[in-house]
């Protein structure tokens, strides 16, 4: 039991990060039908920027706030410079653009920062909490709590605010939303800003556990995309569930089956789900215009 609990703690912590990356994918996808492969780079920018601002002498909270702000600026720049001009391009073209953006951001990061690994001090110490014989890092609670806050805040934003409702309307039917007077371009920009912010927050929270470097985003993007697909592309609840599921499946796979094929576990599940439930666990929209 202690063993199972240990794998579980490990899984939900990593899963919470996947979930936040998957949420970023989902928000941008809903606003623009773009799969943003640079999503992992927001996580990296959040982590690396706060590391460097901290070492430049800024207090941690200020460093974090600035790091998130910088990630948001990068997200908006990405939208304005690369996504907006390619409006109406095919899915494949847009995928290549975001992959190009992720290569570019990674390249910039290794010039602006460096090519070393870095870490942040854990927010509330490193003495593990023992629950049922399993050790839980205090920082993991920060990650889980952070993910929860992000999810709740998004839920409130999308259901209770005018802007959030506008974004949902745009996701549902872009043309109708535009006719109803919603500024679709602003919605698109906001979706990039929001995704970047969530990614950066995830990056800051997780850096004390996983460390960070200029190329930390690449694998996160793949896993986050997998999580989003598993949950059903476009569904926010699905993204969170998908992220946690991928994280837990990996940890259980590494613990109980074989650590060699740990990464394979997630992708095998996804292939099976896609073969038997082609729209993911939570379904997505499936309208095709002829």
């Amino acid at each position: 039991m202690a063993e199972f609990l240990q794998f579980f703690f490990s899984g939900i912590t990593v899963g919470a990060v996947y979930a936040m990356v998957a949420l970023g994918f989902t928000i941008i996808y809903n606003a623009s039908e773009v799969i943003n492969f640079a999503q992992g780079e927001f996580v990296m920018i959040g982590g690396m920027t706060s590391v460097f601002l901290l070492s430049a002498g800024l207090p941690l909270p200020l460093a974090i706030a600035l790091a998130v702000a910088i990630a948001v600026a990068v997200g908006i720049a990405l939208n304005v410079l690369a996504i907006e001009p390619a409006r109406g391009a095919s899915v494949v073209t847009l995928i290549i653009i975001t992959i190009g953006a992720s290569i570019l951001l990674r390249g910039l990061a290794q010039i602006v920062f460096d090519r070393q690994f870095h870490t942040l001090p854990a927010f509330s110490g490193e003495t593990p909490i023992t629950i049922g014989g399993a050790a839980l890092q205090p920082q993991a609670l920060w990650v889980l709590g952070g993910a929860l806050v992000v999810v709740l805040a998004l839920g409130w934003f999308f259901t209770r605010t005018l802007m959030g409702k506008a974004m949902r309307a745009t996701a549902h039917n872009r043309l109708a939303a535009q006719l109803a007077g919603i500024n679709v371009r602003f919605v698109l920009m906001l979706s990039f800003a929001l995704s970047a912010a969530i990614g950066a927050v995830a990056g800051v929270l997780v850096t004390p556990i996983t460390l960070t470097s200029y190329d930390a985003g690449a694998m996160l993007a793949l896993k986050g995309f997998a999580a989003a697909i598993l949950g059903g592309m476009g569904s926010a609840a699905g993204a969170v569930a998908g992220g946690l599921l991928v994280g837990i499946a990996e940890a259980m796979g590494a613990g109980y089956i074989s650590s060699d094929y740990k990464d394979a576990v997630a992708f095998v599940i996804i292939l099976l789900v896609l073969f038997f439930l082609p729209r993911g666990l939570f379904g997505g929209k499936s309208v095709e215009r002829v």
Partner: peptide
Amino acid sequence: TYGPRDSDMTPQLTN
């Protein structure tokens, strides 16, 4: 074992 980009080796170490 663990992968080159793995961020948590707790399960393996538990074993």
